[in-house]
Structures are given as C-alpha cells and as structure tokens.
Design a protein around this nucleic acid. Structure first.
Length: 584
RNA sequence: GGGGUCGUAGUUAAGCCUGGUUAUAACGCCGGCCUGUCACGCCGGAGGCCGCGAGUUCAAUUCUCGUCGACCCCGCCA
C-alpha cells in the first residue's frame, strides 16, 4: 500500500516511482495544477497533479477534499528552481501523481486541524481528529520514547518487569477506591489498585530483588489539572537497600529520561532538602526552586515589641516571617491587592513595608521601634524599592499562606525562570500526620513506611517521628515518592497499633502481607513516579490531559466514549445490585 | 461540598459593562475562475433557539436568578 512513509521521502528518491499513502492535509487547486500535502505521522510531502502527467488523475483530483485517505503512485522529482520549501523537511522534492486511489473519504470536519485550538471539550469528543494534529502527535511520539528509555534503563540495571492484579482488594487509608462488583461472589467487591504497593512488596519477599512496572493506578478523587482518576506510574521496588540506594537508581532513571526528552544531560546529584526546611522556607513540601524568594523568619527581632499584632503572635507561640520582593516597582494598588489575596488564602492580615530613599515606609512603621526597623533593614539587606511582606500568625498558618503567596508573587512578577528544570528530593518526612477528619494520626506516606531508627524507640511524640520516605519534586510539582518499607511483622504490627488499628482489623485487611513479612522478608524499599506528570513537565505542557491519549473531564467523564453510563437491568441483576437514590 | 472563569454560525473570536432597526469578522463549507502554490489567490453564496429555563422590562445575546456543560482553584488526592 506504500513504499515508504511521507516524511521519509527525500532527494535520494528523485527519479524513482513511489506509492505513498496518507491523509490529504492541505490542497491548493490552481485549476490547471493541483497541489496536495500528503500527511502521515512522519510528516508531509507535496503531491502534484498535472494534466501533462496524467489528465485522468488531474481531473479526478479536483474532487479530493481535506482528510481524505488516499494512495498515490508517481515519480519523485526535484522541485523546479525557486519553488523549494525550506520550511518542510521534504521541501526539496515533490511527487507527480500518475494514478491515485481514494481509500476513504472524509465529511466536513467539526474543526480545522491546522488552526487555532478548538475548545478542549470538542478536542476530546473528536480525539481521533485532534490526534492528527502535528503537535499532538509529537507528544505521543515522545511518550512512546519515554516508555522505551525507562524499560531500557531499568532492565539494564537488572530490574525485572512484572504485572500485578487490577482486580484486587480495597485498602484502608489513602484515596477513595474505584470498586468493581464480583458476579461470582455476589455482594463482594474488588477494588482497582491505587498503586501496586502490596504486590510489589510481596514480589520482594518472593525473592525477585528488583521489580518495576509501568502501571495504571486508579484513585476516585476529584480531578485537577495534574490529576486524573486513572494515571500511569513507573513503579519500582528493590531489596537490600536503604534510602541512598533507591535515590541513586532513581536519579539514573530521571537522568536518562531527561536526556532523551530534553536532549541534554541532567546535573546530578539532585539536591536534597529536609521536609522541615522546605516547610520553613517555602511553606510546602514541593517547593518550586525556579525562583528564590524564601521566607525569612524575623520573630526574634520583635521579642520585646510594643506592636500589638506581633506581641500577641509571639505570646501565642506563633511566628513572624517575611518575603522580600526585590527589584520590582509596586504601586499602592498592588500592595492592597496583595493584602486581599492573602486574606483570601486565609491570612489574618498582611503587613507591607517599602524602602524609599533609605527609609522604611509603611502604615505600621510608627508602631515599631527604631532598633527593630534597623535590625530588619540589616538582616533583609534592603535596597530602595524593595518591598517586605510580613505575616504574623501560628507557624503552620504562616508557612502555608506565605508559601502560597510566594507562588502568587512568583507568577505575578515573572520571577519564575520558565526554561529551567529544578529537580529536588524532599527527605526526612514525618512518619505521621494528624487527620482533622479522622481525629487521629495517620501515616503521612502509607502505613508500610519504615521510620528512621526503630519503631520500638517511638517516644510518643507523633509529630517528631521521622520516616525513611522521600519525594521527587520538579518545578513545584511532586513527580514521585517512595519509602523504605517495614520488613518485619512485629514492626508492622506495632505500626498498625500506633495508627490505632485493631489487631483483628490489621489481620483482616493485610493478613497476607503480615504473614509474608513473617517468612523471611528482606529489607526493601522503592518509589513510584507519576509518569504522566513527568511527561507533562518535561514537555512543558499545562495539563496532564495533554499527555494522556484519552483523558477524562473534570467530572470524570470520557467525552469520546460517553463513559460512565447506565447499564441494563439484566447486568445489575446478575451482580445483585440495586441502584438507590439515583439522580436523573 | 465550596469559590471562580467561560458558553454567540461547523470552528475561533468580537458585540454584552451602558437593553432598542438586518448580531460582526476570520477560517471552514457550497458554486465559479485560476499551471508553481505551500496558511495559494480572486469573485459570489449559504449558514445563528446568542447553551437551556425562569424573572425584570414596552423590549433581553446584553441585566438578575436557576440549571447544564467545559475549565481553574479550595476541600479531597497515604
């Protein structure tokens, strides 16, 4: 049906007769002469229909419309002097059609493939048309390359690729599960995996030593620009390792991916930052280091202050922190907007101070002592025009709000160097975090995470106990995370106990893991990368939907297939399911 | 569950704030012309429940409320 792909036609083919197939991209009908850009995934090539070459083909070519699928046969020729097109790789040559065949027609398109992007909803409904666009094809060519790099790298390191069940068991903690009813066991349900966590641990206990899988995971939570209900993880697990071993393998993998997709080596090692430092400097556990602007603590400067707000904060054990915006010109309106923005973010208030002609100016300066002002000026190295934003409140509140305000400032004042890729390991996570909803401490990572040191040394201070867990962050987005696991049953039981699980419950939910841990489980640990997110970031795209062939909308629907949908009563009966409280 | 943005020919947008004669443009589509174009060009034409439903008004694409859908954010996402 074809001798080669459209983009592969070159000057080496001049003089040869080729058969080429593809889609009619653009047509330029000059009456006497018709040009068609024939397109496939490799590129486009110009086909000429001339009455002097084939009157029949020229006559019939008048009826060809865009996106017809055609096959043409003709001689490749060098283009006449002055008509070459340097913008196209095949622009030196063209194919003079002797004969052609219409393999399929195409009705009028719902949107044009070579113009402004139609709405995303329309693109998703007609995803097969959207995909024909060059820029979309590029993404999935890159995605395919990424799969290969990952498989090549990990297998070369001795990792074995596995598949684990999709029809599996619901696990407590973590995200909401997607549920699949069991026909053979009416009234019982499978859960789709949030990750293959337990199975990969079992594979380690099974002695396979190094496991990986490029695997779909499912989480029934609300969607975001970087979150889909089904997404792909690069899942990795290794035996006889500690944190450094895992991070080192992962850095190798990320470097290989980066080299493939960005065409340049990645500077390694990737820097590491303790969780607590990330929280204190950037207010979250995934700082965007493409711009600096850390929070600076100035609580100590005001230890004897007369200024009510600060005094009260310090008495209540809170913190006073600031962000210093340098080299930007802010109008009074910008400052007022900043106050509004932080209030919307949950701040009690925001104080700004601006340095003008060597003096600090602000509505609150009159409440501050001279030495407080000069200490601030000195510590913050202020120059004329600099603005200091100060917040005083509980430490967690300050970190949270200032962290988000920092991102706002970074965006608003173009501080972010958009061409940079700042990878960062966050390490030394707390093992536990308090859940307001459940009124108890839960595992911050998951309940199989090993603490630093022995779990038997737990002092009772949940907040201070650290985990052997780590996250990989790229430009303010979490792209991977993992931990060293608990590999002994007694430790795991202790962990469940600390989390407030009853022994019977733990046995019921994880009996198979607990029993396996009791039969020679090796020390092991691993990590999972969010494959879609990494692609999104490295390809410079705004949404995870852009790197998924058939993504779902924010309400979890597939505009192409119409899922989810009702099912016939017969199927419900088979499953012994009755639908109640249905919304029409 | 909550906050916000958007919805106008097939498509992308303008008009809406400040209600009033025939809702504008580009691309696409249909017809005609054109032998060197490559976003071909030129001439002509068709194409609209202004998302849907209420309300205000003499009059609503325009103002208000509701609703549906897409998107962004908070909660949620070990």
């Amino acid at each position: 049906m074809r001798d080669k792909q459209c983009g592969a036609v070159s000057r080496d083919d001049i003089g040869n007769t080729l058969t080429l197939s593809g889609w009619v991209f653009r047509r330029r009908d000059h009456g006497g002469l018709i040009f068609i850009d024939l397109r496939d995934v490799t590129g486009i090539v110009q086909v000429v229909f001339s009455p002097e070459i084939s009157p029949d083909a020229h006559e019939r070519a008048g009826d060809i419309k865009q996106e017809f699928v055609i096959s043409i046969t003709g001689k490749v020729r060098k283009r006449p002097e002055g008509t070459e097109n340097p913008n196209v790789p095949t622009g030196e040559v063209e194919v003079y059609a002797d004969t052609f065949q219409v393999l399929n027609t195409c009705k009028a398109l719902p949107f044009q493939l070579d113009e402004e992007e139609p709405s995303e909803a329309l693109r998703l409904k007609y995803r097969y048309l959207d995909m024909r666009r060059l820029e979309i094809q590029k993404v999935f060519v890159e995605r395919s390359k990424a799969y290969k790099v990952i498989r090549d790298y990990l297998t070369s390191c001795g990792f074995l690729e596995f598949e684990t069940p999709f029809l599996t068991k619901s696990t407590p903690e973590g995200a909401r599960d997607f549920i699949v009813p069991s026909r053979l066991n009416a009234g019982n349900f499978y859960a789709l995996p949030q990750s293959p966590q337990l199975f990969k641990q079992i594979l380690m206990i099974g002695g396979f030593d190094k496991y990986f899988q490029i695997v779909r995971c499912f989480r029934d939570e609300d969607l975001r620009a970087d979150r889909q209900p089904e997404f792909t993880q690069v899942d990795i697990e290794m035996s006889f390792v500690d944190v450094d071993d895992v991070l080192s393998v992962c850095e190798g993998l990320v470097s290989a991916l980066y080299l493939e997709l960005k065409g340049e080596p990645l500077a390694t090692p990737i820097p590491r930052m303790p969780f607590s430092e990330a929280m204190e400097l950037y207010g979250n556990d995934k700082p965007d280091l493409r711009f600096d602007l850390p929070m600076i603590e100035i609580t100590d400067i005001f230890k004897d202050t007369e200024f009510g707000v600060f005094k009260k904060t310090i008495e209540d054990g809170g913190a006073i922190k600031c962000l210093v915006l340098k080299g930007k010109t802010l109008a009074r309106k910008d400052l007022d907007t900043s106050v509004e923005i932080t209030k919307e973010m949950g701040a009690g208030g925001l104080i700004w101070i601006r340095k003008e002609s060597g003096n600090l100016k602000s509505p609150v300066v009159k409440y501050l002592k001279d030495n407080e002002i000069s200490l601030m000026d000195e510590r913050l190295h202020l120059s004329d025009g600099d603005v200091v934003f100060i917040m005083a409140d509980g430490r967690n509140k300050v970190n949270d709000v200032m962290g988000r305000f920092r991102l706002y400032l970074g965006d608003k004042y173009d501080l972010i160097r958009k061409d940079q890729f700042k990878f960062l390991w966050i390490v030394d996570f707390p093992l536990f975090e308090y859940s307001e909803e459940e009124k108890r401490y839960v595992a911050r990572h998951h309940p199989f995470t090993s603490p630093q040191g022995s779990i038997k040394d737990f002092s009772g201070d949940y907040g201070a106990f650290k985990a052997r867990a780590y996250d990989l962050v790229l430009n303010g987005v979490e792209i991977g995370g993992g931990s060293i696991r608990i590999h002994r049953k007694d430790d795991q039981m202790e962990m469940f106990k600390l989390l407030g699980h009853k022994v019977e419950d733990a046995e019921e939910k994880f009996g198979f893991l607990l029993e396996a841990l009791d039969m020679g489980a090796p020390p092991h640990g691993g990590l999972a990368f969010g494959f879609d997110r990494i692609l999104m970031m490295l390809l410079g795209l705004e949404s995870i939907r852009d790197v998924i062939p058939f993504p779902k909308t924010q309400k979890g629907t597939c505009l192409l297939s119409g899922a989810p949908s009702k099912i016939p009563q017969r199927q419900l009966n088979e499953l012994r399911i009755r639908v109640t409280g249905e919304q029409q």
